[in-house]
């Protein structure tokens, strides 16, 4: 039997962590784009759009991410679509984070005083113009800390994709454990790597929150 040095374990975990980072980034960006669309529907004037977006959000917030992964990974092939673990992981994390981001951002949009809507209405701006030039620039400032904070959830969420066979940090840890029979050491290092990824994110979220609160304004 080959002996594994600590460096063997750590270096292999770090290599796998690249995929965790990549998947997190893609899912976060994808979730952001889809989340904007859902946000738009969630605050639209048309009641059926608002309801549809509300349902979408409830659905993804009200079911475990793992079920969403399974449904996409095992469900889509039933419809004749062959999905790789990669694609399934990306799609489900994107949809999942879009629902949460849309809801976070809705709160930010609704925290903008009603007078801003009324003033821009009285200046003949359309709904989209109001959003783009008046409401979103102000709510974005408020949205930064909770959005960065949520990115931590996305990073941790990627761990679940190990179950459908996507080799990221958690899956790599399992594989290495099976070879080394040192679960505590291996998972300990894996946890440390997750922490090293997440801690700067949640810390910067806190710092941003404080900064934006103090400065509160532009200059």
């Amino acid at each position: 039997m080959t002996a594994f040095s600590t460096w063997d374990i750590v270096s292999n975990l770090l290599l796998a962590a690249r995929w965790t980072v990549l998947l997190s980034l893609l899912a976060f960006v994808g979730g952001g784009v889809v989340g904007l669309v859902v946000l738009y529907a969630r605050i639209a004037r048309r009641a059926w759009l608002r309801r549809a977006a509300g349902l979408y959000i409830e659905l993804f917030q009200g079911t475990p991410l793992l079920m969403q992964l399974f449904l996409i990974f095992f469900g889509l092939p039933l419809l004749g679509l062959d999905v790789s673990p990669w694609a399934a992981a990306f799609v489900s994390l994107t949809l999942w984070s879009s629902a949460f981001l849309a809801e976070i951002w809705r709160g930010c949009v609704e925290s903008i005083p009603k007078g801003q809507w009324e003033a821009s209405s009285s200046l003949a701006m359309s709904f989209v113009e109001q959003l783009r030039y008046v409401i979103l620039p102000q709510s974005m400032r408020i949205a930064v800390p909770p959005t960065v904070g949520f990115s931590v959830q996305v990073v941790k969420g990627t761990a679940l994709t190990s179950i459908i066979g996507f080799v990221e940090l958690s899956k790599a840890a399992t594989i290495i454990t099976n070879a080394t029979f040192e679960p505590f050491t291996v998972y300990g290092f894996a946890a440390l790597i997750y922490f090293a990824l997440c801690w700067p994110l949640s810390k910067s979220s806190q710092i941003l929150e404080r900064k934006l609160n103090v400065a509160h304004h532009h200059h």
Partner: peptide
Amino acid sequence: RALRLKVGMIFQGFNLFPH
């Protein structure tokens, strides 16, 4: 929009765009 192009409005709370 057509109506609001003809009448402007000033509010009690100013409602300037703070950004």
